[in-house]
Design a protein around this nucleic acid. Sequence first.
DNA 1: ATGGTCACG
DNA 2: ACGTACGTGACCATT
Length: 884
Amino acid sequence: MTKKLLLIDGNSIAFKAFYALYQSLDRFTNSSGLHTSAIYGFNRMLDKVLEEEKPTDVLVAFDAGKVTFRTKMYSDYKGGRAKTPTELSEQFPFLKELVAARGIKSYELPDYEADDIIGTLAKQAETAGDYQVVIVTGDRDLTQLTSDKTTVQVSKKGVTELETYTPEHVEKKLGVKPSQIIEIKGLKGDNSDNYPGVEKVGDKTALKLVQQFGTIDNLYDHIDEVSGKKLKEHLIHDEDQARRAKVLATINRDAPVTISLADLDYTGDDLDKLTDFYERMNFKSFLSKLGVDDQSSQEQLATIKCEVLTNKNLDELKQFQDEVSFHLEMSDENYHTADLLGFAIGQGEKWFVTNDVTLLKTPTIKDILTSSTIKKNVFDAKRTFVGLFRQSIELRNVDFDMLLVSYLLNTTNNSNDVGTVAKLHGFNNIKTDEEVYGKGAKRSIDTESQAFLDHLVHKAKAIDALHDAMFADLDKHNQTTLYRDIEIKIAFVLAKMEISGIKVQASTLEEMGSKFTERLSEIKQTIYQQAGEEFNIGSPKQLGTILFEKLRLPILKKTKTGYSTSVDVLEKLAPDAPIVQNVLNYRQISKLLSTYVDGLLKVIHKDDSKVHTRYLQTLTQTGRLSSVDPNLQNIPVRTEEGRLIRQAFIPSHPGWQIFSSDYSQIELRVLASITNDKNMQEAFREGEDIHATTARRIFGLKSNDEVTPELRRQAKAVNFGIVYGISDFGLSKNTGITRKQAHQFIQRYFEEYPGVKKYMEDIVEFARNHRYVETIAHRRRYLPDINSKSFNLRSFAERTAMNTPIQGSAADIIKIAMINMDEALKDMQTTMLLQVHDELIFEVPADELETVKTLIPKVMDSAIKLNVPLKVESHWGKTWYDAK
DNA sequence: ATGGTCACG
DNA sequence: ACGTACGTGACCATT
């Protein structure tokens, strides 16, 4: 029987796990103050890999110390590295204990690194014959060990996401054979291990050279064939360094290991030791996973004294005069349609719970919920409001919305589950819905069970228990105003908009649907003819085979899994082959049909012919809303064919109009305001066309009249780029200009708008120091990667630092406008229906049209006072399509 | 469940 | 030298 040997690079996985959880470092400590994050992450990786690979033999290899044969050979090897933080080094002894408790051997060898142990044992296993080898590491250099018998799994973000390298995958990804990785590293050196290769040689050049010459030896044998005078000089000058770097990069596969393959039997968890270990580490989730603990984890929850609420003891609720915590349970996430299942209510030590939702309508309870003097504490005010509204109960005076507060404190932790959020904030006497109800197909809620009632009480109790502490945190963040004046208020405005819904005429969609279906089958036949065979056009894989293998079209871009067939690629190919344009048309129409015709028809409510979206208020990282079920924030508009979909969106009363107002260039106005850039502010104050002004400035023209449409288009792209946190590469890719040109444009831009330049530098600096950025309304986004060593992660965080205050402040502004709008419209019939990021959509009776033409823009442009004016444009018509 | 594609701001 | 535009959701094919 073939054996499967799993070799784990202990140090590199521990490092990765530690930095992946760096942001939550303080959350991972046990009762004696030991940090446990790396142990936790390591164990998650173990769980996953053991489950997936089911190895027969396992070893975790560790580095023995700083001194190795490599440092003896080159004293600066791994020099200049920051000292391992004590928060990590203190975890290693326990990590080894964990490994042992899981029935796994660990091993280290003086003078050698973990890589060498792994390389040596992998070689032994390959020689022995009946082994399959899997290596798990955080270091991509180990992919040099891949072979037909050995795969290397390298952790990506975090440690549980692994990328599997086979020899084929190495070649595809790196462009060379596994054995040539050391040749590449020899030429370019390694910055993180602190050894040089050949001067001025990086990935690109190294790859080219290795592809041309195969090895460093061969390269120096044929040094005259190297093209490029400078390059040749550097190669000759640095030959010794290159040869040394290659040796340093080479994993030693004949290390004098004193452990043998026969010692590596994987015996499985030692339950006693492991349980004890998990308990000492406070690893609750791992404990419950052990199964030994299923009942005890149920009993672990301290019981909360509560009464089942009935008609008989209802009056006891009258004791709650100041505030109550309340949780309404529903059958699924769509609260517009979900069944109400039960509720819990109470405060302090007094709790009541029931699965009899008819009690909600009793005067006692209704009075509490609708009272404007009794404060309510809930989890998800909008959800609760809609659920109760369907029972004709209008929830008032919500003081604490735990979901909303948690989101404002840290947008990354956006769980919709009370238990998850409660634990996040240190309240552990609660389970998650998933633990109580199950997940996926197994999810079921037994409303008759005691467990159900208990769970509701624990939820309500969690809300009650956390509200002081979470409010205090909010205050520390300077976010109380954001919460009280914006977020909690907009929750109710959104609830009302969702309940209003927007009317969608099914017959209009159906007519469009049959036209689309007809055209689709025509195009399909043409495509089959042009391809010479039938295939699934909707499958990128099959389409790729047809276009790039059968028809031999040039491959312009690849994805992880094959050829890219995205629009930008197909548009470039369209002139070469007529089939491509047909595919593009097919794609467009089938998108319209499946997503917008069939998709919308599915969600029209029978009783009112309307769609009722749900705005997710606690999802985006910037403070924008998102819209689901259906998403009404991405209804087509850019192409005429798609735009026709909007004809199906109509007012809910005959003779009314759809009225739409949008902020013009709100993000650039926000940019002008927060950067305090005088030139950009002037453009907006003078009412100039900002893209034309930008064009005039960066191209050095005398007046905006000299700006051609093409120049304006380019300047517009630069303006967008700035908002997104620009790079010359990104700009050139997006606009088709050269990178050099893009670089010049950006430089010119920063010369002309020096305030913008300074702001971009300052905001990144702020993020580095504080690890977060803020919007005008103190909405906060954490950027844990801002100081990352990974260029990729760090750059992304830097762009985010530049973009989030802009996008997020624009989101703040429209939210304020919506709250004011709700008030301004309260005595009118005009109804606010939708928000699309910088645009509000209403339905308006004929006799109010004249009023709203001035009222709505007024409310929007006076939402906030910036250093530049806000501009609002309005359109209206008998359908959404006509409001243009 | 995940990735590719494409709809929006 | 690095490898890149910011924020979303729905659908389909594929695993």
